[in-house]
Structure formats: structure tokens, C-alpha cells
Amino acid sequence: MRTQTDADEPAVETESATEAESTRESPVIRIDGLTKRYGDVTANDDVTFDVYSGEIFGYLGPNGAGKTTTIRLLLGLIKPTAGTAEVLGADIRDRRALTEAKSAVGYLPDTLGFEERLTGRQVLDYFARMRGDERRAELLDLFHPPLEKPVETYSHGNKRMLGIVQAFMHDPDLIILDEPTSGLDPLKQDRMHAFLEAERDAGKTIFFSSHVLSEVQRICDRVGIIREGGLVALEDIDDLLKRSGKQVRVQLAEPVDEAAFVTEEMIDVETVDRTVRFTYTGESSALLEHLVEFEIEDVDIGDPQLDDIFKHYYGDDTSSEGG
């Protein structure tokens, strides 16, 4: 049994969590040289990594990088050209074993295909018959799609909430989420993030694909970054945070004195008259303390684009051909 991690006191708990993870035995997902080619296009190129029990693993990459391909390979929807993977101990090439393992897997696809004429309740009834629904009521307290209406009248966000309930209601051990928060309003996104953390603390394993860096930074424990079909990085989220930084634009009241303004944590500094743009790699609070020493008209702090991170930290030798 793992101890509950309290968000207010991360330091001690995280240590024991790390300890627990270092003694972890067999991974929940083991991906080994997974390759999928469509003619000349390589959608997944020799992807190798493991996902362990009780972690939120972020699978990060720009759109079209091959995230969905990996997920569809893991679920046996498509077959690998080379390499293999294990999901809950079942080899994805062993159809029978994989089918059995799926009773403990929840899946939220990027594009939700529901029978449009059915109501939300009927859709949930359908999936309940396939694999159970012991947590349905609890989930519907958190996420409330309009159950009595046909799915064809649903907004994007409502559809996604129905998908979330569907993915978790049979209390799976492993949940695979493909861009789970797209279409959700910020409030629901926060609720989803809090829910995922609680699930993780309860021992569930969450595989979370996203193209939004900030989201992955917020909730994931480890991250794998995929680009043009290949895994380019695999690291703890703290390391990624150190590398990625914040994109900052500051407009000062007077022209900038670079020598006084620029600190060590600022990289890629661009100054135009009274405006400074830079990437800040330190703590947000330190940055704010630093900024109040100047007379400032406007500040804009945002997440860097994924592409910028790739450019800065993983090299950009291959021109962006898409994938």
C-alpha cells in the first residue's frame, strides 16, 4: 500500500514514493522497439520505454508525432511492423491474452465514437454490459454529461465527459487517455487533473497523451517526448521543468537597461526598445520578485511552445516534415 500524497506536503511523501518506485517490479506497460510503418511513413520508429504501476506517465508530442499510433498499438487496434509491447503482462501480439487484459484497462480515445442516436445513459449501459460499472455513480458526481439526451446533441465537452465516465467506471488498473482534456472548459480540466492525481495515489496507472506541455507539467510524474515517430526524451517531470522554463514578455515604462535587467535564469533574451522577451528557467516567484524592482507596464508569462523546447533542448537538425 502506498501512502496518500498530500499536495501541501510533497517533499517527504515524494521521497517515499520514489523509494517505492525504485523497488517496483514489472512495469504495467513495457514497450520494446515498437515500430509501425505505413508505406514510406514511419508513424512509430523503434519506440522503447516502460510505464510503472502508480504513476501518471505523460506522453508528450506535437500533433501528428505518433502518440495515437502508440496507443492504438498498445490496444491491439493496429499491429506493429516490428517490435512489441506488453500491457498488464499481455503481449500485444497475443490477441487472446490482450483481450483478457483489457478488462482492467480503461481507454479514452482522442476521437470519441459513440452510437450517436443513443442517450448518454444508454451508452454507459452498453459499456457496463461489456465490462462493469461499479464506479459509475461516483464518476457522474464529478463529471455530468446530460445523460437523458442523445449523444448526437452533445457538445464536444459533454462528449468528453461521457468518455471519461466510460473510461473509469469499471475501475480499471490502467487508464490510457489520448488528449483527455481537449474540449473541456478550464474548470473541468482542473477537476480532471485533481481526479487523475487521486487515482494515481490510489495506485492506478495513468498513461496520458497530450500536446499541451503545461498540462503534462502539472500532473505527470514522468514524461516521454515523441517527435516524428521517435522517442526523443524520457525523463522525470522535474528535469523537464528545468529545461523548458517560461516564455516571458515584459513591457517596461522606460527603455531597458539589459545589464541590470537580465539575470542568469533568462535565456534567449530579445530586447526591442522597452519590450523584453525571454525564456525564464528559474522559479516563478523569483522572477516576480525580480520584476517588481522595475517599473513595469505589462507582463505576459506563458508556456513555451513544444516546438521551442524541441528547438532549444533536443536539437532541431531535422526540418519539420511532420509525421
Binding site: Y107, F114, E115, F127
Partner: peptide, 18 residues
């Protein structure tokens, strides 16, 4: 039709054989 509308993705994510 199920494949094109992606219903098959969800269906085959459940423990049911093809």
C-alpha cells in the same frame, strides 16, 4: 461504419475478441 466513425476503437478497447 464502426471503423470509420471510430466506434470500433472504443468497442475493441473492451475485453471482446474480434
Amino acid at each position: 461504419d464502426d471503423i470509420r466513425t471510430r466506434r470500433m476503437d472504443l468497442l475493441l478497447s473492451t475485453p471482446v475478441s474480434r
